[in-house]
Structures are given as structure tokens and as C-alpha cells.
Amino acid sequence: MRSAWLAIVSVVVAVGAVVAYALLIRVPLVRNHPGAYVVACALAVALAVLALVRARGRRWPAWIALGLTTLLLAGSGWFNFIAARIPSTPTVVRVGERPPDFTLPDAEGRPVSLADFRGKKPVVLVFYRGYW
């Protein structure tokens, strides 16, 4: 494959992986394998290096590709392995035990307690951040 094409493909792979993750994030298979976008960026860097090695004459497209893909690899790696990490916290809730009861207001301000459902319905309790 010609160097210029390799350079273009490498950037497309890196950018494509990050964009695809963002767009497909609702798909559990995608969301739960965030490492995949880091792997794709690493692959992109390899392609850019290959572009550089194969360059005859103009080398700047390959250098630009290497710069961009390395940047995306560093960024995606940082995000996945550092920024997105949650430090372990001491366990309070455990399978087989009852979690603490609580009373919190719903959208209309009405109080909702976990105890309201006891003896009536199973509950799926989801704690989420409020934004991604």
C-alpha cells in the first residue's frame, strides 16, 4: 500500500474508533469494551509508522499521521486507564443482605422509600452519575 494511503487509513482508524465508541455507546457490547478504542489507536499508530517507513519522497503526510494517531492513542489511553477509573471503596452492600433503607424525593417531590416495595415488588436500584 502506498505511504500516503497508509497515512490516511491510520488517521481514519484512530478517529473512527473514537467516534464509533461515542456514537455506539448505548450498545452494551461497545460500551463495555472501552479498551477496544485504545487498541484501535495503537493499530493506527502502527499503520502510521508503516507509512513512514514506506515513504519515498514526501514524508510529511506520514509524519502528520504519526503525530495525530499518537496523540489519539495517548488521549484514549489516558481516558480509559486513568480518567475513567474508579478507586475501590469499602463494600457496604453485599449479595444476601438488605441494603440500608432510604427516603428520597421523586420528580414530583413525593417521597419514595425502599421500604415501600418490601413485600410487594422486586426492585432494580440503579445508582448513576447524572451525566456520563
Binding site: 441494603p99 418490601r118 413485600g119 426492585v123
Partner: peptide, 9 residues
């Protein structure tokens, strides 16, 4: 968390 009808995890 999935709790059963007795409120147990």
C-alpha cells in the same frame, strides 16, 4: 442492585 421482594440484594 437487584433486590428481591424481601428487599435482599
Amino acid at each position: 442492585l437487584v433486590l428481591d421482594r424481601d428487599g435482599v440484594v
